[in-house]
Lab assay of single mutants.
Amino acid sequence: QVLVIRIKIPNSGAVDWTVHSGPQLLFRDVLDVIGQVLPEATTTAFEYEDEDGDRITVRSDEEMKAMLSYYYSTVMEQQVNGQLIEPLQIFPRAC
């Protein structure tokens, strides 16, 4: 299952990153890619938005798994409803 992660860049749009092994993705892998997209920032975590629009911070593989399972459940709903699949949007955080 292909996963598209949209890395939101403060004040300048976003970069889409296509991942072919989504469920095996590790927290460190995401930080590495964010580091390539935002080389001047030191990113130690990132956030995503849940169904209520609240930002949830991801700082570990466990939290990463929770984010992915949340995302895959929303994708299934979108597929069932015949909607366009939205990329998983993440917001890098420099701490």
Rank of each mutant, 00 (worst) to 15 (best):
P39V: 02
I34G: 02
A45C: 13
H20I: 02
E63V: 01
S60F: 00
H20R: 14
Q24L: 03
Y72R: 11
G53C: 05
F91N: 03
V33S: 03
Q36K: 11
M76A: 13
Q78R: 14
I9G: 10
S12A: 14
L25K: 03
L84V: 14
F91P: 04
S21D: 14
V2F: 05
P10E: 07
F46Q: 00
L25R: 03
R93I: 14
Q78G: 09
A45L: 03
L88W: 02
V30R: 02
C95E: 14
P87S: 03
Q36I: 07
Q78W: 08
E47F: 03
L26M: 04
P39C: 03
I34S: 03
Q36A: 07
L3A: 01
S73C: 09
Q79C: 08
V37M: 10
V33I: 11
A45M: 09
E62G: 10
K8N: 11
H20E: 09
V58Y: 00
D50P: 04
S69K: 12
E63I: 00
A14K: 06
I9V: 14
Q89N: 14
V75I: 11
G35K: 08
S60V: 00
Y72D: 08
I85L: 14
G53A: 03
E86R: 09
I34L: 12
W17T: 13
D16G: 01
V37C: 07
E47A: 05
V80L: 11
D54C: 11
H20V: 06
V30L: 08
Y71K: 00
Y72I: 06
Q79L: 07
L88Y: 04
I5S: 02
Q24P: 06
V58R: 01
Q1Y: 09
R28H: 13
T74W: 10
G35A: 12
L25Q: 01
I90T: 04
S73H: 10
L84M: 14
F46E: 02
T74V: 08
Q83T: 11
P92I: 03
A45V: 05
G82F: 06
S21A: 10
I85E: 08
I7Q: 01
D52K: 13
Y72N: 11
E63C: 05
P87R: 00
V33M: 15
G53Y: 02
Y48V: 00
T18N: 06
Y71I: 00
Q78C: 07
L25G: 04
G22M: 07
A94L: 09
Q24I: 06
F91L: 02
I85W: 07
T74N: 09
N81T: 09
P10Q: 05
N11W: 06
V80H: 11
S60M: 00
V19T: 11
I7V: 06
I7C: 01
I7S: 01
M67P: 04
S12D: 15
S21K: 14
I9M: 08
G53D: 01
P39G: 08
E77Y: 11
Y71W: 04
T43Y: 11
T42N: 14
W17M: 09
E49L: 08
D61R: 00
P92S: 04
W17Y: 07
L31F: 02
